[in-house]
Design a protein around this nucleic acid. Sequence first.
RNA 1: GGGCGAUUAGCUCAGUUGGUUCAGAGCACUUGGUUUACACCCAAGGGGUCGGGGGUUCGACUCCCUCAUCGCCCA
Length: 807
Amino acid sequence: MSGKNALWVPGTDHASIATEAKVVNKLKEDGINKDDLSRDEFLKHAWEWTDKHGGIILNQLQKLGASCDWDRTCFTMDEVRSRGVIKSFIDLYDQGYIYRGIRMINWDTKAQTAVSDEEVIYKEVQSKLYYLRYKIEGTEDEYVTIATTRPETILGDTAVCVNPNDERFRHLKGKRVLVPLINRSIPIIEDEYVDMEFGTGCLKITPAHDINDYEIGMRHNLKSYDILNDDGTMSEAAQIYIGEDRFDVRKKIVVDLEKAGNLVKIEDYTNKVGFSERTDDIIEPKLSTQWFLKMKGLSKPALDAVMNDEVVFHPKKFKNVYRHWMENVKDWCISRQLWWGHRIPVYYLEDGSFVVAETAEQALEKAKEKTGNANLTMNDLRQDEDVLDTWASSWLWPITVFDGFEDNEDINYYYPTNDLVTGHDIIFFWVARMIIAGYHFKGKYPFKNVYFTGMVRDKLRRKMSKSLGNSPEPLKLIKKYGADGVRVGMLLCSPAGGDLLFDDSLPEQGRNFANKIWNAFRLVKGWEVSSDIEQPESAKQAIMWFEQKLNQTIALIDDHFSKYRISDALMTVYTTFWQEFSSWYLEAVKPAYQQPLDAETYKATVEFFDKLLRLLHPFMPFITEEIWQLLDERKEGESIMVSDMPVASKTNNEVVEQFEMIKEVVGNVRTIRKEKNLPMKEQLSLSVLSANGDYSSTFDAVMEKLANLKEINKVSGKVEGALSFMVKTNEYFVPMDGLVDVEAEIKRLEDELKYQQGFLKSVTAKLSNERFVNNAPEAVVAKERQKQADAEAKIKTLQASIENLKK
RNA sequence: GGGCGAUUAGCUCAGUUGGUUCAGAGCACUUGGUUUACACCCAAGGGGUCGGGGGUUCGACUCCCUCAUCGCCCA
């Protein structure tokens, strides 16, 4: 509508862990065990599942009227995107950013895969702190006591650690203790990591199952026993309870420890435990061989770009969150022990060495080259069984949607893109990594702006979740309130980066607005138009005003859009349509019952309506198109979608301000009607007393119509037996034929006088403050002087009126 | 434990570089309304010491400090 080549590429990712888990479950229901399937057979099921469910979100977007280029719909696992992922892997490997190594990773025992740090959700849980005593080797009954929340892990202990500054344990230096139940002899070591205040001040060290213990183990050259199998049962290394589940063992071992005399006490304890984002399994820190991406150097340009606003965050407050993460970024574990995903393009030889290549054929070539053995065959190569983290494909999105690892017109034209719209919950998962990838692979940011939408929550501020069942079903909402209603309702109260507490009243408000637009259309379309009648003065004036009001609105909307204040832009057009257009303008031009409307006014009204529809179209695509087509003759194929967005011309502010006064006068007259029980139908007279004789009658005709006046008299003195009110410095009188309650009127005027006097006092105080007059900008001072003059005039008028009434 | 952010009307939130007696919007509420576009409506209204305290300034919802409460992120 603004003449830009606007492209919104729709697409979905393959959500590897979540999808694989769903497919495994579904297979289980069908009596099929994943392990009994070949990789290819399993993938067939996964594709079937994806075909069935992957389109749901796109369908919802379509129903919502999202203006995407649907022909370009992408999927992270489709051919083009996959090619890009593999290429990027090879590129990063060749440049030394990707490495394979044994590291402490987060292990999901349900999905039986590693997950990244970002996929671990820490939750507070009520647990127990177990105090256990370890016998000191070579003594009869000397012990040290440690505290742990995970007693089963003692089977993997390889040391007990105390703080070297801890006087209490001086005597233990160089001694050894025995691990309860299995009587393994382990050393007592010293490390400043130990918090002397916590527990007993003695810490058991299990390098294989805790990240901190792992680091201490590295520092002290400790052995490490991995006592857990991948499925969370105890391994042979545990020596006892082999094959039993970790949580069953926790219960059992406490009983056994008590029997053996090693249990000192149990305390209630609240601690944070990591859960898998996808399976909700309790994450096990585990030593494992995985693929990693070095992040530090790679992320530097991306950090700088956001900090210096080369990439602009809306709202800005997320810059800090971003910086904090980027400055502490750790290497990214990108391998997953799954089948659903991009298989890692690494091919191993018999001897464990490997080559990295796009295809098996290329791998074979590389392998021959590497080994100097020309007789190698495919059978000598074994591709890595693992796949890549889903985000390792999503992070390339701004590039791969344009097939950007190949040179082509699209990527050159569209990259870098303008705006990313997303939720702040994936600022690390996605946003940060896309920026990193953009700079690395394209040498330039992937998008200029990041707009963080509001996050929809329920009324209790809880996130929408399937398990809570608190998420409204989009298609149902659309059915009930209309797509436009849902869009408007949600967007009206959804500032960037804030929370949006969902309630049915939201889409309801949107629906009501759509209804209002429709009714306004019915009114306009229902008028009988006659070119024989003359245009009433009131209509002429209303048109003159609304033209300027609309100009002002357009300028304001433009300003909001330029600042990414989407809700404000919508609210502006919302109130303009409802308040200004429907309640003021249409009422002002509306002909009397069953009377025709003059052609000129009709034409202007349709033009205004047309412009308003176009301003509304980005927010309400369906109703605006429908009405736009019916509002006027349209050519074949014409659509509001590609009509011109109205452009603001210079606003005559004086006209707008004058009309605001008219509104105030009309409002005052209506109040008088209500207070005095004067029916709307009864015509009233209005007299105006202008303090300095500069009363403008520009909008008198409109005023007469809207307040239902039979006349407006300019007077030069107070009107007796009338109710009065002031707007700016003008005084207005509505004659009452003796209906005036003098006492009440005096009281009202005195209240007003009191207020004005207080006001004048504050303004005068300000103006008599030399420092204010000297320091404040001239415009501010001038304004204050104007206020002072107005207040003085008003006070004079009020005093005179009161005197008059008291006579 | 570390960091970030919030606290404005009954509710959800604006308040755009400190400057109208400025405290605003929507919803909700009250009152009145069968004016044939709309009761999913119209009109009029009530309602907030801008979390507490202190400071800077001629001037603070806005800047600084502090306390309280809440939320989020990270360990």
